[in-house]
Design a protein around this nucleic acid. Structure first.
Lengths: 163, 163
DNA sequence: CTCCTTATTGAAAATGGTTTCCATTACCAA
DNA sequence: TTGGTAATGGAAACCATTTTCAATAAGGAG
C-alpha cells in the first residue's frame, strides 16, 4: 500500500524504516507537532507541546529526533540569531512552499514571505552555479534573511533585541 | 585636527568620544587586532591575540568591546551556524568592500566573495523596498550565505559539521 | 506470539559560548 | 590634580544543547 500514503498517519514511516530508523512515540509526537503547528518552533516549543500530551517524552528525545529529521531532510533547522534554533517541516508532501524569512529584531517575530521569491531563487541559483565553479564548492544550502523592526516595534521606539 | 584623521592611530577616537565612550587599552587592542588580522575572528581568536600582547585584558572586555563596536556600526557580528559568533570590521575608512560569505560545513572555512555582489545587492535593495512597504517593516540588515563543502572537504568524502 | 538484539530513551550531568555581578581601577573633564 | 563615573577582570551565572549511561522497547527471526 505504499502508493497513496503520501497523506495519512504514516506517510513518513516508509522513509523512516527504509533508513533503519524505528518508529517511536516520541518521533511521531514531534512530527505531529511540526505538521499541525505553524513553522519556526524552538526545541522548547516542541517539547512543551509534546510533553503536554506525552509527559514521558523528554527533552533529549526532542533534540535527537529533530536531529534525525534534519538529517533526513524532512525538517529545516533555522537560525534567526536569537541564540536558539527553530525548526520547520521542509517542503514536501505536507510541507509549505518555498519561502524566506523577515525577522523583527525587536520582538523576534518572524514573517514568512514568498514575494520576490522567484527572482531571489533565480539569482541564487545563478550565483550558486558561479560560486561552485569558481571555488569548486558543492553548495547544499543557502540563507537569505532580512532583519529589521516590525510595525509594532517601530512605534514603540526602536528598541532592539540585538545580534 | 579632525580633518585627515581618517587614517592614523586614532581615526575612530573622535567617533568614540563623541558617543560618550572612553578610549581604553582594551578597546584599542581589540580594534588593532580586527584591523590587522583578516575577518571572521571569533571572540576567542581576538582574546588570544589581545591577551598575548596585553595579558591584563580579560575575556569580558573583549565581549563588551565587540558589543560596543557593533552598536556603533564599526564592526559586524557574523553567524556561520557553528555556535560561535565571528566579528569583522565593517565597511568604512579602513573596512573591506561589501561582500557575502560562502561557508564550508566540513571545515568551517569561510570565503568572502564579491562575485555577483552587484546583482545581489540590486535584488536585495528592491526586495527590501517591497517588503518594507508590504509589511511596514524598517529593514536594517540582511544576511545572504551559501553553505556547502569546499574543494578539500569534497575529496575527503562529504563529512559534514552539521547545523 | 515470544524472544532477542540493539536502537532508543529519560534523567542528570557536562559542555561551551556568552553574560552578569560586583568590588576595584582608571579615563578624562574641570 | 582630583572627583565622578565609565570601564574592567575574575568568578559565577546563564542557557541552549549534548553527552553519559543504565533501563526500555521496537520489530525481525523463529
Amino acid at each position: 500500500m505504499p502508493r497513496g500514503q503520501c497523506r495519512g498517519q504514516g506517510w513518513w514511516h516508509g522513509k523512516f524504516r527504509g533508513c533503519g530508523y524505528r518508529i517511536t512515540l516520541g518521533r511521531e509526537a514531534v512530527l505531529d507537532v511540526l505538521s499541525s503547528c505553524g513553522g519556526h518552533l524552538s526545541a522548547e516549543d516542541i517539547f512543551i507541546k509534546v510533553h503536554s500530551k506525552y509527559p514521558n517524552v523528554g527533552f533529549t528525545t526532542i533534540y535527537r529526533t529533530l536531529d534525525v529529521l534534519c538529517g533526513l531532510g524532512m525538517v529545516c533547522k533555522l537560525d534567526f540569531g536569537d541564540g536558539r534554533a527553530r525548526y520547520e517541516l521542509a517542503e514536501g508532501p505536507k510541507g509549505a512552499r518555498h519561502h524566506h524569512h523577515l525577522v523583527c529584531t525587536g520582538c523576534n517575530k518572524v514573517i514568512d514571505y514568498t514575494d520576490f521569491i522567484d527572482e531571489e531563487v533565480d539569482l541564487l541559483r545563478q550565483t550558486e552555479k558561479g560560486l561552485e565553479k569558481k571555488y569548486n564548492f558543492k553548495i547544499n544550502d543557502h540563507v537569505i534573511q532580512f532583519y529589521g523592526l516590525c510595525d509594532k516595534c517601530r512605534k514603540e521606539g526602536g528598541k532592539d533585541a540585538g545580534f
